[in-house]
Design a binder for these strands. Sequence first.
DNA 1: TGACATATGTGTGAGTTACATATATCTTCT
DNA 2: AGAAGATATATGTAACTCACACATATGTCA
Lengths: 109, 109
Amino acid sequence: MKPPLTPLIEPALLIALRDGTSHGYDLADQIGEMLGIDRIDHGNLYRGLRRLEAEGIVTSQWNDDEPGRSKRTYALTEVGEALLAAWAESLRFTHERLTALLKNYERKP
Amino acid sequence: MKPPLTPLIEPALLIALRDGTSHGYDLADQIGEMLGIDRIDHGNLYRGLRRLEAEGIVTSQWNDDEPGRSKRTYALTEVGEALLAAWAESLRFTHERLTALLKNYERKP
DNA sequence: TGACATATGTGTGAGTTACATATATCTTCT
DNA sequence: AGAAGATATATGTAACTCACACATATGTCA
């Protein structure tokens, strides 16, 4: 019984980015905490970020200022902010449905 | 922006079956109403039901008593009831996470 | 040196989903 | 009677998603 959280990764990502620019590895941590997932799959996350960039949802640029492996820093575009607003509405709907579903389950028959 | 409701179809199905035996087409209606989905994909639903039967979650038998196309009537097994309880726990967790996510989004930055 | 954490990626096979199509029975409208 | 539409069960399939394994680079600490 796995909780269906994977479809929430994209909106969680956008919410994390709304609070400021960040890079993939750090975003994985933030999302993991938000969703209560121990391990976010990094491979798929980076692929997802590139897809979002191709769609104009986020932009990125390399950051070599700090020591260590170069980081690719992502930021939310205006299109991305609009998408997040749409996501929020859709999430509210899902939340409502989940509430109703659980209520239905918990009621005494 | 599609609400991620598809992963909730299986638990919704089990909840519907908990209230009594039913057949595929009718279950599609019940689930659709529970989840606020206009059209449940019948093809995949029937395939899903056969998968659940193979896994011992539900049982089925043909019902030719009523007029019209023969119906295959499904019922929840004990294994299925246990699975539903596990689903409920997992759904509660997802619900919590969704609540937190929306709260995070709605807070003023 | 070797292990581990940080950081960004590619490869891939299994499983899921959306959408189209087929078949059968019954009701309703024209 | 004929056509359309609802009820009911099912198959086919292309596209997509996901989990898991692997590759690569840099820095730290024992």
